[in-house]
Design a binder for these strands. Sequence first.
DNA 1: AATTAGCTCAACCGCTTGATT
DNA 2: GAATCAAGCGGTTGAGCTAAT
Length: 276
Amino acid sequence: MGRAPCCEKEGLRRGAWSPEEDDRLVAYIRRHGHPNWRALPKQAGLLRCGKSCRLRWINYLRPDIKRGNFTADEEDLIVRLHNSLGNRWSAIAAQMPGRTDNEIKNVWHTHLKKRLDDERKLAAAGGGGGRRPHTRKQPKAAKSAAAVKREATPSVSVDTSSGVTCSTVTESSPSSADGDHRRQQQQTQHAAVKEESFSSGGELPAAAAAPTAAADMDESFWSSTEVTGMMAGLGDMDEELAIAGTSSAAAARSDDMEFWLKMLLESGDMRDLAVL
DNA sequence: AATTAGCTCAACCGCTTGATT
DNA sequence: GAATCAAGCGGTTGAGCTAAT
C-alpha cells in the first residue's frame, strides 16, 4: 500500500507548542471543528502538520480532558482493563472519560507497571502480597508555558456546535485554575489518594468504597451497560480468585499474565472484549 | 548552592486500518 | 481489486522538572 508522507517536513514547526499556537488551534476548532486534520493547520495558520495538531488537541487541548492525578480507583481500573485488554490504550481510555490514551499509557509505563512488578516480586518472595500504598512522587506543577497560559485562559470551552462533543467534566478544568491553585488541587487530590491507600479493599466498583475518589468519575460511566457488563466479568474473575484461596484478590491479580490468559481462554467468555 | 539521578509527560515516529477514488 | 488518502493507534524519546546528595 502506498503511503503518503506524514507531512512536508520543511518549514513546519516541531516540539513544544507555544501558547499562541494553542490559542490558534483551539480558536479554529471552536469555530470550525476538525473535519480534516491535514488541512486544518493551513487553514488555522499553524506551521504544524495535521498529525501534530490532532495529537495536541486530543491529548491536551480538548476541553473534556480531566487533568491531575489519577485516583487509586482509576489506577485500579487501568490495571484491570489492561489485564483484559492488553496494551490497547485507546480501548482502555474509552472506558475512562476524561483520560487520554497517551496519559494512561504514560501512567502505566511510569508507575503502574513498576508497581505490579514489585508486587509480583513481593508475592514471589512470600512477602505478604497485597497492595502497598502509593510511593508515587508528588506530581510536578504544570510545567510548560503553554499549560500555564492555558490555565489562565478561561475560554477554552468547546460546545457541540463546533462538531466536538464536550462532556461535563469540570473537576479540574483549566479555566478556573491558576498555577498555584492547580498545584494545590493536585496536592489535595494526591493526599486523598494516599489516605485511601491500596489496602482499603478497594475492589471495583469503588464508588461506594471511596466516594471522594469516585466523585471524579462520571456516574453515568459506572452505570453504563458496557461498564457494568465489563465489571460483572471482572467480578467473576475476582470471585474465582477468591475461590482459588488467595488471601488477596488484588495481589493475585498481578500474579501472572499467563494466569489471566489462561483464565480468559478457559472461561471462553469474552464478554470483556465484546465491549469493543 | 551546586550537581546528579531519576521521573514525568508532551510530542514524535512509524505502522495499521478504514474510507474513498 | 489496486492505489491513495486520512485518521487512529501504540511504542519510544527527550526536555524539563524534582528530589536526593
